[in-house]
């Protein structure tokens, strides 16, 4: 199409000039269309940066194998009994680990100058943030599905069947929508993507272990047990376990949803404010 004399790796000035002359400014797109375009970008990231997904998916699978076969018998009497206990908790761990990447990718955009590109466009301001939720949710569903499938391959059978597993996964994903704004704020405040990752995991790793994900807190010393009981990750794990067992613990489910809503109510406005001013 372009002038045949131009080297293939160089700009063709005549064609550039035609390209410059040929556009009229189209009408501004609506908020929804803009957010969906950012959603599309989020999906492309899942495709192009699979490492992120691998990192967070493999760690829980490793824990699943290690805990079940090394400690499972000792903790619960048999590996299959332990798998029954721990799998819903590992589902929580797997998806919550993935939420840290909401902050990491936001920080990457910020440090690379991509955020400035978006901020220089005449678009609906919250669109980039809301759109990225779409890509994030795909990651959450994949991370959660992988751990459930590996569990089933190892012999885990949820009493509530597929419906129970789907309900538990849905609850964790909704909770993650709330939690991801905490990491988005970190992503906007810290200096580098690595700093966000370190801070995120430094927070979420011990919280996961000081919960009922791996062990029944009944055997823990009093003060520790008291902490584990109020740890949100315990409450969410209890809710998921109850959904997968077919005996929904309404209290735990409601608390999980309220906490998710609370986190979003505080950290979503904070995120949008920081996003505007950075």
């Amino acid at each position: 199409m372009s002038a045949a004399t131009t080297a293939p790796d160089a700009a063709d000035t005549a064609a550039v000039r035609r390209a410059i002359a040929s556009t009229a400014r189209p009408p501004r797109p609506g908020p929804l269309s803009t957010a969906l375009t950012f959603g599309w970008r989020g999906m492309l990231k899942v495709k192009h940066v699979p490492e992120q997904l691998m990192d967070v998916t493999l760690t829980p699978v490793m824990f699943l194998l290690m805990f079940t076969y090394l400690f499972g018998g000792a903790i619960a009497g048999s590996t299959s009994a332990y798998l029954d206990y721990t799998l819903p908790g590992l589902l929580v761990m797997s998806v919550l680990f993935t939420t840290v990447y909401a902050g990491v990718s936001l920080n990457t955009d910020l440090t690379k100058g991509v955020v400035d590109r978006f901020r220089s466009l005449p678009i609906w301001r919250p669109a980039p943030l809301l759109g990225s939720l779409l890509g994030d949710s795909v990651r959450y569903v994949i991370a959660g599905t992988v751990i459930i499938v590996v569990g089933v391959l190892l012999g885990y059978r949820p009493d509530a069947g597929v419906a129970g597993a789907v309900a538990a996964l849905a609850l964790v994903v909704v909770f993650s929508f709330g939690l991801s704004w905490v990491f988005s704020v970190l992503g906007l405040l810290l200096r580098s993507p690595n700093a966000v990752m370190n801070a995120g995991f430094t927070g979420i790793f011990p919280l996961t272990f000081l919960s009922n994900v791996f062990v029944d807190p009944a055997t823990l010393p009093g003060p520790l047990q008291a902490f584990v009981d109020v740890n949100l990750i315990s409450i969410l794990a209890t809710a998921c376990r109850s959904l997968m067992d077919g005996t929904p613990d309404v209290g735990a489910i409601v608390v999980s949803l309220l906490v998710a809503a609370g986190l979003a109510a505080v950290f979503l406005p904070l995120t949008t404010r920081l996003y505007r001013s950075r």
Partner: peptide, 15 residues
């Protein structure tokens, strides 16, 4: 207006 260079980057993780 539009921006280039360090001011507003393209996305390295997309084509």
């Amino acid at each position: 207006v539009s921006l280039t260079g360090q001011l507003a980057s393209v996305d390295e993780e997309l084509t």
